[in-house]
Write a protein that binds this DNA or RNA. Sequence first.
DNA 1: ACAAGGATCCTCT
DNA 2: GAGGATCCTTGTT
Length: 201
Amino acid sequence: MSRSTELLPQRFFARDAVVVAEQLIGKRLRRGRVVLRITETEAYPPADSASHCRAGRTRRNAPMWGPPGHAYVYLCYGLHQLLNVVTNRDGEGAAVLIRSCEIEAGAGTVRARRRGLDGPVLLTGPGKVGAALAVDGSVSGAPLYQRGGLSLLDGPPPDRLLVGPRVGIGFADAGDIAAPWRFAAGDTRWVSVRHTLVPHR
DNA sequence: ACAAGGATCCTCT
DNA sequence: GAGGATCCTTGTT
């Protein structure tokens, strides 16, 4: 049973990033009156050459090295705030990037934060999700398993699951570029870069 | 103190 | 399909 009002417990996130990325499809993000259904994720597990943790601990990536179930938010290309969820064990350095969502509640607020746009263009891409939730660096490090602020709620898994390589990591090692660590719901058009995704298993 | 580059998005052609 | 926006983080001097 998965009810949308139930918080995901911290132990949900205390697994490998690849497992958590798959399991997060269909779960919900809530901030204030805005509720989003997660439709696309990417895993950045330990020892991943595409991860912000590849060069060790820094001031920016400190939350990724911390306990699971906390947010990691960073500024990408100088203008986009990208939201991640920390996974694995405290000290391992891993996270899941939230890439796309569907709107379940708060459509007016989301549209206002997204230039009045409508349809999948609203939320298909990680910078768009950050804008819709109005997150920034002040959220980085905050727990997501308690009420208030930004939180993660339960939700049913999708009917069909898609899998494929991650986006925008051409700088990484060949094996990590090819790794099938991106997951998406197969029952929606609210997913970015769909053409590199295939049915899971 | 400086230079390089990036887990992206939007507009225009 | 190409290019500009925009600025912080990081590694190097």
